[in-house]
């Protein structure tokens, strides 16, 4: 092996790597928040909606979970364009990621909803809580608290999967890397650096979601045990 590793050529590009990492984080954050809302609404519809809503949500979840994100990204990006609507690559990326992670969130949250005990509902009913109040306090919050670790893993995966949107030239970390490697011809080194940045990002995302969980789930913070 005669290859000489040379990372020095990449030094000049650190602002770009940083910018790419920042864009990836933004893309992931927006997709996570919107995907969480979409997925939770779907989970509620799936477990408590009229039959046609249940069917619709179930179909959505199955279709998304059984097709590759890459193809979903292509359909959104190229497909919307053929409908005559112009969307940027970044917007298409967010749409695809939200639709994708919404389906996974739906499945996870639904498992949480199903784990809420019936007696809890009866207790809440007897206390005279309104239906939305019951839903929020007795079902949704405990359900999400219970599946929060699974959601965390899913959102870390989402951050990593957002690299796929580089394939429609959304400007995130992987796309930045692709450009830098073709400018510098230090391809291997570039992807090593980017791989390390992704590792760091997945660590950051995990920590951030953990801290967020501590803030939101008071019981867990005080007792130190999961619900």
């Amino acid at each position: 092996m005669t290859y000489q590793f040379d990372f020095s050529a990449l030094w000049a590009f650190w602002p770009e790597f940083l910018q790419g990492a920042w864009l990836t984080l933004q893309l992931s954050a927006v997709s996570t928040v919107l995907g969480f809302v979409l997925g939770t609404l779907c989970a509620i519809g799936r477990s408590d909606g009229p039959p046609w809503v249940k069917f619709l949500v179930a179909s959505y979840v199955e279709v998304i979970r059984n097709t590759p994100l890459l193809v979903q990204v292509f359909i959104v990006y190229f497909g919307i364009a053929t409908l005559g609507i112009k969307v940027s690559a970044n917007a298409a990326a967010v749409i695809a990621l939200v639709v994708n992670v919404g389906a996974y969130t739906c499945e996870i949250v639904r498992a949480g909803l199903e784990s809420v005990h019936k007696s809890q509902l009866e207790a809440a009913d007897c206390l005279g809580l309104s239906k939305p109040q019951i839903y929020w306090h007795v079902i949704i919050r405990p359900a999400i608290e219970r599946v929060y670790p699974a959601l965390t893993s899913q959102y870390v995966l989402l951050m990593l999967a957002s690299s796929i949107t580089s394939q429609i030239s959304a400007e995130e970390l992987t796309a930045v890397a692709n450009r830098i490697q073709s400018d510098t011809f230090r391809s291997f080194e570039t992807y090593i650096v980017v791989g390390i940045i992704y590792l760091a990002l997945s660590f950051v995302v995990r920590i951030a979601l953990w801290l967020f969980g501590l803030v939101v789930f008071v019981r867990k913070r005080k007792l130190g045990t999961a619900l």
């Binding site: 092996m1 999967a161 992807y191 090593i192 791989g195 590792l199």
Partner: peptide
């Protein structure tokens, strides 16, 4: 496990692709 699960598959594939050339 941490490294494989913490790196996007896309990056892994790029690394293999360019890595194979480096190895000769």
């Amino acid at each position: 496990i941490q490294v494989v699960q913490g790196t996007p598959l896309l990056i892994l594939l790029f690394l293999i692709y360019f890595g194979i050339a480096i190895v000769g």
